[in-house]
Design a protein around this nucleic acid. Structure first.
Lengths: 169, 169
DNA sequence: AGGGAATTCTTGGGAATTCATGGGATTTTT
DNA sequence: AAAAATCCCATGAATTCCCAAGAATTCCCT
């Protein structure tokens, strides 16, 4: 049924670093994990990247494998490949949903995006990945991120016009 | 489950040259060792290379065999083969994980990458191999290595854009 | 359409296990 | 013998597992 992450929500982070994954996201994770079988936890990969990234990006196994395959297709040792390997292999973490539907965020990751214990995590779906932000950070970034690119569109424009501007790859 | 090395961490090197291998890496090593059986230590190969390499590269048995086979397929005696044999056969070391999950780095290897006793070793996963750096060296390289190439990307760019810029080969 | 019952979600806490690290004693190397 | 490497045991810290309960949602029957 659910094949794409859709929607947003906020969840509490407890003092062990656990966060409930929105239920609808859990189904997408399960559907995107080739090894998943009913009743068992789904696997996923969290890419946290370098200091320039203020959120965690969560990939289904299928999605990350697509990225891995593309990286593996680059010439071994070239600069792009090394950089991408560092980003997507090194600065990432494979983990799984626990039996109650939560994700455990290690302290290192929480610190990286400024998620303190007992704060709020903001989840937003984005196709075959979803992002986890610290609530406040997301609100601030709203005014400075990619949205800025489109503020200049005529008042009332539909974002769909962009579909034909950008080139498919 | 885990078939690729993913993530990074720092571990202490004690005064005997022992370093804990991150637990998740141990499982990948075990999975990639055809001779491995439960409860026993996994084997691996550490490639340290010549002076131009500031880190140790660790291969699963399966991964190094793939490299070995490719080398063996080259014409006997050609320059490439001789060089690769020197790098991957000569300047390498087969060893195994000890019973407490540690790797014992011989003094020669520690010296080579500047890992003094009681310093910190930095581990980073990279697909079917992982690297061991001296912490400080890695940090320094961060600002001068391949990362520098990408600092000029527009603010907020996703490294993924590189996937389509670079040419597959 | 209404209302109660049943399920699913989110959140919490303690127990059990695994992990990282240290040290002593014995063996091997040079 | 000195230095280095190996083996064995020990322990605090961190992580995972297991059980629990209130809140929210969905289901179902009238």
């Amino acid at each position: 049924m659910a094949r794409r992450f859709r929607g947003e929500s906020t969840q509490k982070v407890d003092n062990k670093g656990r966060v409930s994954i929105p239920a609808s996201f859990r189904r997408v994770l399960a559907a995107g994990d080739p090894d998943w079988s009913d009743g068992h936890p789904a696997n996923l990969v969290i890419v946290y990247g370098d200091h320039r990234r203020a959120y965690l990006e969560c990939y289904t196994i299928e999605a990350i494998e697509e990225v891995d395959d593309k990286i593996a297709a680059l010439p071994r040792g070239c600069a792009e490949r090394r950089y991408l390997e560092k980003m997507f292999n090194g600065m990432s973490l494979e983990t799984s949903v626990d039996t109650t539907g939560r994700l455990v965020l290690p302290k290192k990751l929480r610190d990286k995006i400024g998620l303190s214990t007992d704060s709020e995590a903001y989840f937003i779906g984005s196709g075959d990945t979803f992002q986890i932000w610290k609530s406040e950070t997301f609100e601030t970034d709203q005014t400075s991120g990619e949205d800025k690119l489109f503020e200049d569109l005529p008042e009332g424009s539909d974002p769909l016009v962009l579909l034909d501007h950008a080139q498919a790859g």
